[in-house]
Amino acid sequence: MLKLKNINTFYGKIQALKDVCMEISQGEIITLIGANGAGKTTTLMSISRIIPPRSGDITFMDKSINEMSPDKIVSCGIIQVPEGRRIFPILTVSENLDMGAFLRKDKSGIKKDLEYIFDLFPILAQRRHQPGGNLSGGEQQMLAISRALMARPKLLLLDEPSLGLAPLVVKRIFETIIKINTEHKTTIFLVEQNANLALKTAHRGYVMENGAITLSDTADNLLNNEAVKSAYLGI
């Protein structure tokens, strides 16, 4: 579904991604794990073309997306929930959700999806008229994922959804991620520092170090891999 071939991304003179190659198939949950500053967020930002790669090819559903602007990427169905949630603080909860559906024109479909989301996270329905900035961290993460769902993603990119959340909320968020994947067959690309949780959720995983992919295997194998265990799982 999504193929990254020899992606090189730079911040000025500093190379953040080195020849990154990845492949994500339809319906999978893929995770990318790695330490702080390994280049995980940059990988997602390169796919969304917020930080366009300097070289390499990205194809999505057999179509090159190399020359597209970020809004065109969204219209292809690649939707990102960035790190830190990035809720529009002064827009209300329902306006934030409207923004998620910005490129859609099917009013009845949008309404149906909104009902689905309020069913999934009833707290958002209760707070729909409040500014997004007033929500708690966990509620903001729910809103951020919901906002992305409003775009009907084909591929959902999630950047550190567990960051700064209470364990119970994290559990809830990850259950939702699995639910989205099984119910809607949405392909999910999950970037996480919490490697244990990520590998237990995902089907396959990649390990990133200093901007390069060093390992790739099924999630189960990575969980049992000695190097991964000592570096990321703390066992």
């Binding site: 917020i50 809004d71 990035r86 910005f102 775009a151």
Partner: peptide
């Protein structure tokens, strides 16, 4: 209006505005 909401979203967070598909 839609463009009005897009203006407010862009004013608050340009990068996120791009990520929801706003040009």
């Amino acid at each position: 209006t839609k463009i009005g909401k897009a203006m407010r979203a862009t004013a608050q967070d340009k990068q996120m505005a791009m990520l929801v598909g706003i040009d």
